[in-house]
Amino acid sequence: MNLGADWREYDVAPLPRVLDAALGVFAEKGFHGTSIRDIAGRAGLSVPGLYHHYRSKQDILMDLVLTVMGELLSRSRAAVESGADDPVARLDALVESLLRFHMFRRDQAFVASSEIRSLLPENRAAYVALRDEQQQMLEDLITAGEVHGAFATPSPKEAARAVSTLCVGVASWFREDGPQTPDEVVARYLVMVHGLLGNR
Rank of each mutant, 00 (worst) to 15 (best):
D85M: 10
A79D: 02
V65Y: 05
R55M: 12
S82W: 07
R77T: 11
A84Q: 14
R90A: 02
V88T: 06
A93V: 07
I60P: 07
R90L: 03
D85V: 07
G83R: 04
A84S: 12
V95H: 06
G83K: 01
M69N: 13
V95L: 01
R90P: 03
L61Q: 07
V68W: 05
A93T: 02
V80W: 00
R75M: 07
M62N: 15
D86Q: 08
E96F: 07
G70H: 05
D86S: 09
S97I: 10
G83F: 00
S56E: 11
A89M: 06
L61T: 07
M62F: 14
R55Y: 00
L94P: 08
D86I: 05
R55E: 14
T67P: 07
Y54N: 07
R90D: 02
D92V: 01
A84W: 14
P87T: 01
H52V: 15
K57G: 09
K57P: 04
V88C: 04
R55I: 11
T67G: 08
S74W: 00
L64H: 02
R75L: 05
D92H: 11
A79M: 05
M62V: 08
S97K: 03
T67Y: 04
K57R: 14
M69G: 12
D63H: 11
P87M: 06
E81Q: 13
M69S: 14
Y54M: 14
S82C: 02
S74G: 13
G70A: 07
V88R: 05
Y54W: 05
R75Y: 14
L73S: 08
L66W: 11
A78W: 10
S97C: 09
L72S: 00
A78C: 12
V95K: 05
S74D: 14
R55F: 02
S74H: 00
A93R: 03
L61N: 12
T67F: 07
M69Y: 15
A78E: 13
V95R: 02
Q58K: 04
M62S: 15
L61H: 09
E96C: 04
E81G: 09
G70M: 07
A79T: 04
A79E: 01
T67H: 09
S82Q: 04
D59Y: 00
L73Y: 10
V95G: 03
E81L: 13
L66R: 14
M69K: 05
S74Y: 00
V95Y: 07
Q58R: 08
T67V: 12
A78L: 13
S97E: 03
T67R: 07
L73I: 15
V95F: 12
E71F: 03
V80Q: 06
E96P: 06
S74T: 10
M62P: 08
Q58A: 14
E96G: 12
A93L: 08
K57W: 00
R77E: 14
V88F: 04
I60G: 10
A78I: 11
R75S: 05
K57I: 05
L94A: 00
V68R: 03
R90G: 01
M69T: 12
L64I: 04
V80M: 13
I60T: 04
E81N: 11
R75P: 06
H53C: 06
G83W: 01
A84F: 15
S76I: 02
S97D: 02
D85P: 04
H53D: 10
S82F: 08
M62L: 15
S82I: 01
E96A: 10
D92G: 05
S56V: 12
S56H: 05
S56R: 02
G83H: 03
V80N: 06
E96W: 09
H52T: 15
K57A: 06
A93N: 14
